[in-house]
């Protein structure tokens, strides 16, 4: 297959390597939940397709675990002069461009596992809910610094809604 992959130039900043750990943990949790549902079908309801479901759940988990490093690496962002670029996904790939002036607020979240690894998630919220820019897996200090920087940038380019 010729390469029809969507891509965009520029130097992308990647998230922390440790973020792979978070992705792996999430994949395992997903797998456990799926397997639990399948087992429920097998043992309680006794459905014939229960074993197939369990197999599918294990397969999905295996695939998720295999691509975890790539998924973590696929996340990137660029701080351009006037806007923020964000990319995510391998199979379903997307790039978003948000002008700094569009910032309404910035969230910095820390999940339990991310906190153990010293990571933070940074969410850039605009007036459009569909913007969906959420940069996971930033080292705590970097996330705080990035937040302050983005707020300052937004302040200097502020405009109406």
């Amino acid at each position: 297959m010729t390469d029809h992959r969507l891509d965009y130039g520029g130097s992308w900043r990647r998230v922390s390597r440790k973020y792979v750990g978070v992705v792996v943990a999430e994949s395992i949790v997903t797998g456990v939940v799926l397997a639990g549902i399948s087992l429920f079908f097998v043992l309680v309801i006794g459905a014939w397709f229960g074993w197939w479901m369990l197999g599918a759940a294990l397969l999905v988990t295996a695939v998720l675990l295999v691509v975890a490093p790539r998924r973590a690496r696929a996340i990137g962002f660029q701080l351009r002069d006037d806007d923020l670029l964000f990319r995510q996904g391998i199979m379903f790939f997307r790039i978003v461009a948000v002008p700094y002036g569009r910032m309404q607020l910035i969230d910095v979240n820390r999940g339990p596992l991310a906190r153990v690894l010293g990571l933070s998630d940074l969410k850039f919220v605009t007036a459009a809910a569909s913007t969906g820019v959420s940069i996971p897996g930033l080292p705590e200090a970097e996330a705080d610094e990035l937040r302050d920087r983005l707020v300052a940038l937004a302040e200097s380019r502020r405009s109406g809604l």
């Binding site: 297959m1 010729t2 029809h4 992959r5 969507l6 965009y8 996904g89 199979m91 379903f92 790939f93 997307r94 790039i95 978003v96 461009a97 948000v98 002008p99 569009r102 605009t126 007036a127 459009a128 569909s130 913007t131 820019v133 405009s159 809604l161």
Partner: peptide
């Protein structure tokens, strides 16, 4: 002047067709 953000995306089908 009112646009909040622009997004370009591609799933597996569109990748096969060289679309976005």
């Amino acid at each position: 002047a009112r646009l909040q953000s622009v997004r370009v995306s591609q799933g597996p089908v569109r990748r096969m067709l060289d679309l976005a």
